[in-house]
Amino acid sequence: MFSSRKKRIKRAVFVHTSLIILAFVILLPVIWMVLTSLKPTVETLRFPPRFMPENPSFQNYLAAWRNMRLGTYFINSLYVALMTTLVAVFFGCMGGYALARFRMKGEKLYLMFILATRMFPAVVFLIPFFIVMRNLRLIDTFSGLIVSYTVFSLPFSIWLLRGFFRNIPTELEEAARIDGCTRLRAFTKIILPLSAPGIAATAVFCFIMAWNEFMFANTLIMSDAKRMLTVALVASIDDFVVRWNELMAGGMITTVPVIVFYIFMQKYITGGLTEGSVKG
């Protein structure tokens, strides 16, 4: 009894120490980013460099927001990501519900198709997309970007939502319909509230996908007024001026919303992931 307790403590110490070290090493790039974002320029140009800022301030955040115009880009990214989420979740509900509830010919093929779309390299789509968007005059528009992002998040959104809808017993819905509800009413009254967490998780996924995307935003958007946040950050490593402290502040501004989402949605993300890509 005593030895087993000793063993348990020993194990707890081992697990905690290794996790603390690992967590520190893993978070180091983020820590370095935060510390740099608090340093005045002179301190970032010190050779050899120092880890901690000596005169920390939030000046760089203000500068990034104003001088780097991150405010504009933030709103652009927010708009595109929200629109993408709206469209992808709406169609995802439709498609996911149909696939969860109806037996259809070619269903398996369709599911395979959905999965397969997630496995093509994005760059392979980019080239024909550019040509199609060019002919539709959608280059350098938010709509062009929203369409592209929807295409990429829709398969995943359908896939996730199908999983959530399937977990809701058919009996509930049937009972409502016996009570005289139409299918749509049964869907909105029963299925939607019950699958709300699933829908929220799907929405977060779509949002983050669009928020983080870089390649399409970099290629399909031309003008400064419509630039996305991630592209603007990378573009700020320009040929003439690189301000690493402001850049890292900008990186934090871009990352923090996503981290907040993750922390709040952690439970569903793990669930969503295992639904979407592990359990099927």
Binding site: R134, D224, D238
Partner: peptide, 23 residues
């Protein structure tokens, strides 16, 4: 007037021009 990054500007202008949306 729009501010653009210098790096990659030439490529951006060419693609924008061919897409009909250049300044």
């Amino acid at each position: 007037i729009e501010n653009m990054p210098h790096r990659g500007l030439m490529e951006k202008f060419i693609t924008a021009s061919l897409a009909g949306v250049a300044p």
